[in-house]
Design a protein around this nucleic acid. Sequence first.
RNA 1: GGGCAGAUGCCGGAGCGGUUAAUCGGAACAGACUGUAAAUCUGUCGCACUCAGUGCUACAAAGGUUCGAAUCCUUUUCUGCCCA
Length: 388
Amino acid sequence: MGTFKLLATDGSARAGELHTAHGTLLTPAFMPVGTQATVKSLVWDDVKAMGYDLVLCNNYHLYLNPGCEYIAQMGGLHKFMNWDGMILTDSGGFQVFSMATLAKIKDEGVHFRSHIDGSKHFFTPEIATRAQELLGSDIAMVLDQPVAPGATYQQTKEAMDRTHRWAERCKACHTREDQQLFAIVQGGFEPELRRISAETLAEMDFPGYAIGGLSVGEGKALTWSNLEACIKYMPEDKARYMMGVGSPEDLFEAIDRGVDMMDCVLATRIARNATLWTSYGRINIDRPIYKGKDEPIEEGCDCYTCRTFSKAYVNHLFRNKELTAYRLASIHNLRFLKRIVIGARQAIFDGRYSEYKKAFLDNYQVVNEKVRLDQKQRYLDRKAKEQA
RNA sequence: GGGCAGAUGCCGGAGCGGUUAAUCGGAACAGACUGUAAAUCUGUCGCACUCAGUGCUACAAAGGUUCGAAUCCUUUUCUGCCCA
């Protein structure tokens, strides 16, 4: 395969490029999530303008609605949603996990009920793979089984072993040459199992590898220790995709540990709930303190929202539940992550990743509104001093 | 001028003799959100304090009935509808 090219390293951090049927991804990379063949509230011009060329769509959701056969008839997912960039589809394994009350997992596959109408469905590795081939995504994921924090060792091992067997079955039935199939490392919160999972899957020789089942409520310490437990056993010459991460600070931590790709709904979800990222931390733009603030969300931000509108205006849109608010906020947050990742790549090439990370984290604080304002003042003071 | 209906916390609107500082919405305020069942969810929401507790003041106003009233009676004020 050899679709991934490692171009530079700085400590564990990596810069590279991943070649796909619809373009080349520069890594480290973050991908916006467009579950239902759309990044919520955005159009592709927005996504492209932010610099993104790879988005994630969801096999489970598209399988239920409008159906993968249907999308194939419509000319495939790229044509259907009219996106000429790269697409990665998640298999639906995560949905099986997060909607566990609706699912019954057996070795053959997963019996589950649709969250939409309660209808019964059966998902197997073969069906999940076939569905993604119908969609025609550039990167498909194997069907996997994550476990929740608090799962026993035995439960974790069973889910991991099943994930391995399923990975093998996905690989065996996968035929599309213009689509790469990535395996997913599991092993829950058992470092030993994480290692075994990485080693086992590495032997199966997939074109790319993901780390799944992390950042599902286990706490940061466990997230990073379990990432470390497996990533060093993953092939160096293949892309490493950490699923479901992250926040700005998480991006830095993941890249620092050798992750090449990430995706996360957080940026767009919290944006729709009026939380915006800035260099000094999160702000809730719908709060009354932003009334009358005739300044951009973040001074110097190059996103469309910051170039065009004031805090006061975005505040007004949110307070009145105007639909444009969701779009403007999503644009800001996604561009914020994109800039982090662009900077990270450059810093890795320049051999100064740890300084880059430190500079960001020194300013960025996850705190409440009042402390946040103090933090902002300190940030601005520091900036002023630097310039003087 | 006469008849009927009604006045409840920021707003709307339940309750119609006692577990009522008062159901439920909305607004407001705050918190959460990490491979999207999320334009969602959670908490607070009369006032004051030594705040998982205590004390005040409360259902238009005044008076009355009752052990006990937002709930029953009387009068007053205001609002809506109908008849002259």
